[in-house]
Design a protein around this nucleic acid. Structure first.
Length: 564
RNA sequence: UGGGGUGUGGCCAAAUUGGUAAGGCACCUGACUCUGGAUCAGGGGAUUGUAGGUUCGAGUCCUACCACCCCAGCCA
């Protein structure tokens, strides 16, 4: 309780945004008894983190106001859609942490009703069958600055349109010969209103309706009506559909629909150092530039999941970026921050050596070994302790030794003493090098009095390094991932030239501590001082593969970068 | 040159009816530390696209201008 006179603390809660305000107003005014939104993916590709933003907005708003969010597949174009995608999309939305309950729908569920409404439009003189060719239609449409002209078929008798439309449905016409158009205004400054197509002939098998239909509704017609059928109150979509809103409203106003949804547009997410369009992601997959939709370098949810991202981190990210109407390019560093914050809490710490360098502790008895106690997560004592084996020969990280240490380098070098994490203090006494001068073996002595890491005489050491006992180490493969592109905003026709060639580095000869031998695929671990890693599905029981999800913040890397 | 949308510190993004620029990320410094991790404390940085105007007072209102994004699929 705040003391008398204490200033009221600003209410913590989701940051305000314009959509939340609109919905809150509508709830307050009693306009809607219950809020309904929908997430309407087209099953023609995998979901990416841009979709995650939309999902969080759609489900988030509904959830906040005690409403529901439907998952509705916008499957009105059989030529591009596949069941593989409807399945992956459901998996990804569920993985992200959202539940549509019983509300799984398909626009194709409404084809019959949509068709009947189209007939109503024709009967009312509000739509007509056009028999111009696609090229002619384009020509008649005019340009952005010049009005279009009416099709010669625009005023054909209603009965004739009705007959033609019925025959389109019956499959009597080939694709491109006839199309049903709304009769609106060929001179509209908004080209979307220049008698937009409502139905086209498509003789392709649909993944749900098979070959029952020869005509398919266009997005601009199917979407508002599907929303109305589902009693969606707020139809949230991205900015590029703002120009379509008048058409969205036209459909609703000209038909006897069961409810009046409202479309609201917000800016889509752009992330630095990656691409976000399905077209480009599909191209990366098709060209073999990545291993698939779930390549850990991809911004797809499947890729991020395999990379080791958690749904919690992604949701947190989506909340932090906000919702507005300005074009944006969000720094991927924010995503990484959210990830580290989540993984720091949940990932047990372990030790793994990625680029091994042998250390021999000369004064440690040959053949001896012992178990050292290690804390699993200093952030969470409940995660307990484990034991790690120690012996005379160890692997340490190659970069943790420098024969000639640069300024401010605190790690091992001839004469210096460091702490082995959870182990002893060791002092470097010598180094063995190969013909090219590369260190191959470092010799040290240990101080038996420092077991566990502390010196009885209180002397301090400037650095603690990780290690793995050579005799006990388990071999593993580690895949180091980095950002997919080397430029912030890969654009233009040559966008693929900016792919980061170092986005994947595979290390085949890594050593992990024995406790990691049974790590389950998908489990998250911190390799101390290195980063967060996840067990990849490519792992076999005798050979684990780890993906680096994200590195730890590396102050030394920054010092070093500035220093030289 | 038509229509729609947007412009707030490097990147996102708030700001009840105009009242005197939140917060996060990034960056820098210090403290602490058996991860150069985490954590904590502090700091730099905005004439709110520009120019005018209204007002005691404008990011919020008015005018003009500039910049950027989207639209001419029988894609979504």
């Amino acid at each position: 309780m705040a003391g008398a006179g204490g200033k009221p603390k600003a209410a913590e809660g989701p940051p305000s945004n314009f959509i939340r305000s609109i919905v809150a107003d509508d709830v307050r005014s009693g306009k809607h008894a219950r809020i309904v939104t929908r997430f309407p993916p087209e099953p023609n590709g995998y979901l990416h983190i841009g979709h995650a933003k939309a999902i969080c907005v759609d489900f988030g708003i509904a959830g906040e106001f005690g409403g529901v969010c439907n998952l509705r597949f916008d499957d009105t174009n059989p030529a591009k859609e596949e069941v593989e995608y409807v399945e992956s999309i459901q998996e990804d939305v569920r993985w992200l942490g959202f539940d549509w309950g019983e509300n799984l729908f398909y626009a194709s569920d409404y084809f019959e009703r949509l068709h009947d409404w189209a007939v109503d439009l024709i009967r009312g003189g509000k739509a007509y069958v056009d028999s111009l060719t696609p090229d002619e239609i384009r020509e008649y449409r005019g340009t952005l600055t010049k009005a279009g002209r009416n099709s010669p078929y625009r005023d054909r008798p209603i009965e004739e349109s009705l007959d033609l439309f019925a025959r389109m449905r019956a499959g009597e016409f080939e694709e491109g010969t006839h199309v049903l158009r709304a009769k609106i205004d060929m001179a509209s400054p908004n080209v979307n209103l220049r008698d937009p197509a409502l139905y086209r002939v498509r003789k392709a098998a649909h993944h749900r309706t098979g070959d029952r239909w020869c005509i398919y509704p266009m997005y601009d017609y199917a979407h508002p009506l599907s929303d109305a059928i589902e009693h969606v109150t707020h139809s949230l979509c991205t900015l590029e559909f703002a120009d379509h809103r008048p058409l969205y409203d036209w459909c609703i106003e000209n038909l006897d629909v069961p409810s009046r949804p409202r479309q609201i547009e917000f800016a889509r997410l752009n992330l630095s150092y990656t691409v976000m369009s399905k077209r480009r992601l599909r191209e990366l997959v098709a060209d073999g530039l990545v291993s698939g939709w779930d390549d850990p370098r991809m911004p797809t949810l499947a890729g991020l999941r395999r990379r080791g991202f958690t749904p919690e981190a992604i949701r947190d990210f989506c909340e932090r970026i906000g919702v507005a109407k300005a074009d944006n390019l969000v720094d991927v560093a924010l995503l990484e921050h959210c990830l580290r914050e989540d993984l720091n809490r949940r990932a047990p710490r372990t030790m793994a050596v990625l680029r091994p360098l042998k250390v021999v502790i000369d004064n440690y008895p040959e053949g001896a070994e012992e178990e050292l106690e290690a804390v699993n997560n200093p952030e969470d004592p409940a995660m307990g302790k484990r034991t790690v084996p120690f012996s005379r020969e160890l692997w340490i990280e190659h970069e943790d030794f420098r024969e000639v240490p640069p300024p401010k380098y605190f790690r091992l070098s001839p004469g210096t003493e460091v702490r082995l994490r959870w182990g002893y203090l060791i002092r470097c006494t010598g180094v063995v090098k190969d013909a090219s001068g590369e260190p191959t073996e470092v010799h040290c002595t240990y101080d038996p009095e420092t077991r566990g890491g502390n010196a009885p005489d209180g002397r301090k050491v400037k650095s603690t390094i990780h290690w793995v006992s050579a005799r006990h180490a388990v071999p593993a493969e580690v895949r180091l991932y980095d950002r997919l592109f080397s430029v912030e905003a890969p654009e233009g026709p040559s966008w693929k030239e900016h792919l980061n060639p170092n986005a994947l580095e595979t290390l085949e000869r890594c050593w992990i501590e024995p406790s990691l031998a049974g790590a389950a695929p998908g489990s998250h671990w911190q390799f101390e001082r290195l980063g967060y890693f996840v067990v990849d599905e490519d792992s076999r029981s005798d050979r684990k593969v780890f993906n680096r999800t994200v590195s730890l913040r590396d102050t030394w890397a920054r010092i070093e970068k500035k220093g030289f």
